[in-house]
Design a protein around this nucleic acid. Structure first.
Lengths: 224, 224
DNA sequence: CCATCAATGTACGAACTGGTCCGTTAGTCA
DNA sequence: TGACTAACGGACCAGTTCGTACATTGATGG
């Protein structure tokens, strides 16, 4: 009894599981990043989709599992970026600069990811702990760093005795802080760490710092 | 008609506004740090107190204002620590090492503060923006850093051309990351950044890195 | 062309949660 | 000592929110 409806578009309802799933994850990523895990609203996520809340439960089971799925995807993106690093042909110093720059750029390009990681840390990383996939997926970056460090030490350019994981933490911390804490930092120090004009400056600063440390002759004498 | 009640302790109810207020803030700090702003429960905060939820609204007005009050107190603590810095009598290198160490220790000693800052950033620092007190209270650390940098440059030991605010960001980022992201980092890289045995190592590493950068001759040639 | 099932939409409910109403009690000061 | 007020307790309400029961529809194979 539908009056004058185009039979080609009866309700506009198209069945496309992959698209629906993807749309839910996109909306969820934004909503979780916007308001945190507890602050995110399942209804709001659904509203930002061409489907309904029912589908979230159909595909993911619940809010918790949806958040885990969102996290898994966000991490897989950075893992892929790391796998594309391709620094084997560079000399150690250039390789580290490259690594730092890629890490820097990836953080800047994915503020939602940073936000999700912050949120996950508020909850003690319980979702990562509960995800086989995430615990299995180790970072290719660590291996890359290890190889660069070995090469640099063999050539005698790197004198500092650093561990690959620690160096990764060092590089990540600056990239992460710049994005994650931009709001409080800007409010308190009146400096927008993400300002376009400053980006190149910070990217260079980070690389300079790391290289200076790695090549800083003997470890400087400790005073106190 | 209270049967056999000690008149000295009729109900155990003592009137102490300051204590009640303080207890609420302590409980709120823990609860907000535990579950985020939206995840924190006003009832739970009240339960962790010798008073009731009613008093939270009596003293603070609401959840939002309570969170702001908690933030204000947390920031005032670090500001006081910065004011006690006392590095004027040290040579520039030692002064920077001292500053880095104090920042490092303060972050480690106040994980709840770190958590609160993370949470505040998820919400775009809206509470800081809405707090006169917080916007007014600028960091003494910046002035201290500025003076140290000037002295170091005058003496010729510091060659890098850094800004005080940027250096502060650099130092803070590592200290912050180590505490804020310890859970995800540990889950993904199987390394506990807060492990006791590693603390000295990381503290030295941070100072070495900053000093290496500040004293690294000409700014290293930029490659890409 | 019909049976079947994955995919989807609607409406609803039970539990939770921030916030408030109203009454009570302990100090204190005239 | 009695009135006054700051400090306090407990019950309750209204709106929200996650999750689900149930109905429906489109594709697919026989």
């Amino acid at each position: 009894m539908t009056t004058a409806e185009d039979p080609a578009q009866p309700t506009g309802r198209v069945r496309d599981a992959a698209r629906t799933r993807g749309e839910i994850m996109d909306a969820a990523t934004r909503e979780f990043a916007r308001a945190g895990y507890a602050g995110a609203r399942v209804d709001e996520i659904a509203a930002r989709t061409r489907t309904t809340k029912r589908m979230i439960y159909y595909y993911f089971g619940g809010k918790e599992q949806l958040f885990t799925a969102v996290l898994e995807r966000a991490y897989s993106v950075i893992r892929e970026a790391e796998q594309r690093l391709d620094v084997e042909h560079l000399d150690p110093v250039a390789a580290i600069r490259r690594l730092a720059a890629v890490t820097f750029d990836h953080h800047e390009a994915h503020p939602d990811f940073i936000q999700l990681v912050s949120i996950e840390n508020v909850y003690g990383a319980e979702h990562i702990a509960g995800s086989e996939e995430l615990r299995r997926l180790s970072s290719p970056a660590i291996d890359v760093i290890r190889r660069i460090l070995d090469a640099g030490r063999a050539e005698g350019v790197f004198t500092a005795d650093v561990d690959a994981v620690d160096l990764h933490a060092m590089i990540s911390s600056f990239c992460f802080f710049r994005v994650a804490n931009r709001h409080t930092f800007c409010a308190l120090f009146d400096r927008d760490l993400l300002e376009r004009d400053r980006r190149e400056h910070y990217r260079t600063m980070l690389a300079d710092m790391v290289i200076a440390y790695l090549t800083s002759g003997e470890t400087p004498a400790r005073q106190h």
